[in-house]
């Protein structure tokens, strides 16, 4: 099988990040991959956000679902995971799956075929997506990891969450760079939003208060071809 080969070339030992004893790759395209579990996690796809806006009169381009799925297809083709966890807010609203164009539905189903696919319930999509395979769960525990949409206020080692759409900002030579990021302190990881139309919220915002040990917080900022690990002391609010 050639997928193991492609995985081997993708993952370098030095790129692995520890989360509660498990090893994961923070991929620059915004997904988290656990090689030992052959598990790929992706968060906040917000599919059909475009049509959700259109319903309310803002006719923004209807290409977001296609764009998001194409990118997802690419990472799935690279890692060939056995398990895929979509960490909630997979659809922008409850009617999203129903509105989805048939060509997109087919593309999504092709990706799902032969894999264990979990839809974690999010605040935008608390119910199972209409007419799609996969299992809808409130949260999911695998090994020492706990996958759920919203991070809990209490500290939970091994929690992988989404919901907050983290981004980080640095200022270097008088110029400001803001990027989506993974935010992790070794115990908990909050994933960046993957959807094409998803905005983001700085990890230093009040909404993150109490979620991380600041001394060990690292923002894994998404670059054009790699991840940049930036320690919390370098980060700027706003």
């Amino acid at each position: 099988m050639n997928f193991s080969l492609s995985r081997a070339t993708l993952i370098a030992e030095a790129d692995l990040v520890g989360i509660a004893g498990e090893r994961a790759v923070c991929d620059w395209r915004g997904v988290l991959y656990f090689p030992d579990l052959r598990l790929l996690a992706v968060s906040d796809l917000h599919l059909e956000k475009g049509s959700s806006f259109a319903r309310r009169g803002a006719l923004i381009p209807p290409y977001d679902t296609g764009a998001t799925l194409l990118r997802l297809q690419a990472v799935i083709a690279d890692y060939q995971p056995q398990i895929v966890v979509s960490l909630g807010d997979s659809f922008h609203d409850g009617g999203g799956a129903e509105r989805m164009h048939v060509s997109f539905r087919e593309r999504l189903e092709a990706m799902m075929a032969g894999r264990d696919w979990f839809w974690v319930a999010g605040n935008h999509d608390p119910e199972a997506p209409a007419d799609l395979p996969g299992e809808t769960v409130k949260e999911l525990a695998i090994g020492s990891l706990l996958f759920r949409h919203e991070p809990s206020k209490l500290r939970v080692e091994g929690e992988i969450a989404g919901h907050l759409h983290p981004c980080a900002r640095i200022v270097q030579r008088g110029r400001s760079v803001r990027r989506r990021c993974f935010a992790g302190d070794g115990g908990r990881m909050i994933m960046p939003a993957f959807g094409a139309y998803t905005g983001s919220l700085n990890v230093l915002d009040r909404a993150y208060a109490g979620l991380f040990r600041l001394e060990t917080l690292v923002a894994y900022m998404l670059g054009a071809e790699r991840i940049f690990a930036i320690s919390s002391s370098m980060l700027r609010p706003g």
């Binding site: 640095i170 270097q172 030579r173 110029r175 760079v177 670059g223 071809e225 940049f228 930036i230």
Partner: peptide, 10 residues
């Protein structure tokens, strides 16, 4: 070259 700035920071 925004990634260059990120690289510097990293």
């Amino acid at each position: 070259a925004n990634d260059t700035l990120l690289m510097e920071a990293a």
